[in-house]
Design a protein around this nucleic acid. Structure first.
Lengths: 329, 329
DNA sequence: TTGTACGCGTTATCAC
DNA sequence: GTGATAACGCGTACAA
């Protein structure tokens, strides 16, 4: 690895001059610039980011913290973030928290230890205390926050819309699957759905759940149809749970969407591949990632941002687990 | 951020001593150690990884390069890697190459610029030239390599097994979907299947494809049944393609697995959720990730490794797109 | 327009 | 046992 000193020697100048052509600041004669540049070529020089980072107390790294990349909703988010920051020359320091506070704290720690210039976090820690003392910008993703900039889908409205679309399609005894209490977005959707159904004239049940893991979801799906056998519509807290419900309904021989309608949330890639394909509320994950990255970059540059909290639209994706709208309604 | 100097001052010792207790080397009196440790507590000190990295020319970072985390096969790999290296205190510098050589090169560049201690690469660059001049260990993942350590599923045998299982279950006119030419694992599977079918007494067709994207796969699926309408068994190059084939077959009103059997490859999470669920050759992605990480760590520590190339078993997962074995055969 | 010298926070090598 | 001090590679006052 050639250093700036080597380049200086070969070019017959001082390190300061090399640094100047490198960073394109300060005056430097055209001829010397050429000499330096050819020297760089010759030595195949490229500046040491670590030394830079040490001196400037700023790296070109951004920390990305996800609950679990294995959950199909997150790869899209991650790609959105990466594609956006990559354009600006930033790279990703990446970790999964598994929703464990210690892991989360640990990653935040390594982020600052490595001089990251910003953090994007999609974890569900509502306390935010982990981020209190940070001197770098933090953007929360897929999560609302009073104190911090954030990018999230409009869960409340999404929940309302899901409920509305289901009622519009004729379900009369709807079960809402209330997602894990500690996951804010899940609660928002639930609230939205609850609001709408409360105002409507259909019966509904509420069933609590505690995670988004498919294996667990299977159990709730089973429980759902045992406890509320007359359910004719299910508002699932996300697509994974919806998938489990769909499977269970099929297993019980129920006709979908004729006897039971199902609407999921997120529109993860596999939802369109199910059979019947899953009607769902789409969250624009990739765009959300991009948006969060944009926001973070603006924040890092201390540019003015009109809106610290960007709420992304959640749209109904009509597929095969919902019926046609009843026209005479 | 407290520095080592601050700690030294508070503890009334020199930075050298602090460094010694920090790194647990050299002699240091029990009493002074205590003083230093309490000083650290007090200042909430934690060493600056960047400075360390600069001096030692080694960070605690490992570079992970994937083709595309959005492809459902890779999140599992990534998790395997992360879980393993995390235990040893390493963190991930992460990037997607999109199979673009420039991006790949760019990421490798930032990896070395940031003093990573090792690289795990799952890209499909067969040239390997990008990695030639690296002074740090590299492990290829989901990919064979003569020159570099690597971890991969036994594609050849997987391909053979897939073909065998399909023949065993009675398909007589099998179409092999030959995956993209530049993706080695896909070619291995293809070769394996080809081998077996060549030796067997069933007819078969071969159809080329050029990517693993679902939207493209749909077209090939369509083409497949147009070109070879009498196909009664499809050996897909991976689960994404298999899914497309399954959908097309269903669309055409073919009965699965009665008229057409389908076997995928990878066993991505969604395969079990399809309807009918997809029979496939399982690659243990998570374990492969772990294995690659283990290997890399051993390499970094210059420990002896019996085997630079670890081949993981690929197993047949029998689900609903294949029939029962015909007993009287 | 260019060069010198120092500091960024650590670790390691010497003296003491 | 402990303390100066020189690296590590780079950026930047300040001097020339």
């Amino acid at each position: 690895m050639a250093t700036i000193r080597d380049v200086a020697k070969v070019a017959g100048v001082s390190v300061a001059t090399v640094s100047r052509v490198l960073n394109e600041n300060g005056y430097v004669h055209e001829d010397t610039r050429k000499r330096v540049e050819t020297a760089m070529e010759e030595l195949n020089y490229s500046p040491n980011e670590v030394a830079r980072s040490l001196y400037k107390k700023k790296s070109k790294l951004i920390g990305l913290l996800l609950p679990d990349i294995t959950n199909p909703f997150f790869p899209q988010l991650a790609r959105g973030v990466e594609d956006e920051i990559q354009k600006e020359g930033f790279r990703l320091l990446f970790g999964n928290s598994d929703e464990q506070p210690e892991k989360e704290l640990d990653y935040i720690h390594t982020f600052v230890q490595n001089n990251v210039v910003g953090i994007i976090s999609a974890t569900n820690d509502r306390s935010d205390t982990n981020y209190k003392d940070l001197s770098i910008p933090v953007v929360f993703l897929d999560q609302t926050s009073k104190d911090y900039p954030s990018v999230y889908g409009d869960g409340r409205e999404g929940g309302r819309t899901a409920a509305k679309e289901m009622v519009k399609r004729g379900s009369k005894r709807i079960t809402i699957l209330k997602g894990p209490a500690h996951i804010q977005p899940a609660q928002d959707r639930f609230q939205g759905a609850l609001e709408y159904l409360s105002e409507s004239n259909v019966d509904f049940y509420v069933m609590g759940t505690t995670s988004f893991a498919f294996e667990e979801a299977k159990k709730w799906a089973k429980e759902l149809f045992e406890t509320y056998p007359d359910t004719d519509g299910v508002l699932a807290s996300n697509d994974i749970v919806a998938t489990a419900v769909l499977h269970e309904a099929l297993r019980l021989g129920k006709s979908i969407p004729k006897e039971v309608q199902i609407i999921g949330f997120d529109d993860i890639p596999q939802s369109s591949l199910l059979f019947p394909s899953l009607s769902t509320m789409r969250q624009p994950a990739y765009e959300m990632g991009k948006e969060a990255a944009c926001l973070l970059i603006k924040l890092m540059r201390k540019e003015y941002v009109e809106q610290n909290h960007v709420e992304m639209p959640v749209t109904f994706i009509e597929r095969e687990t919902t019926r046609e709208v009843e026209v005479n309604e």
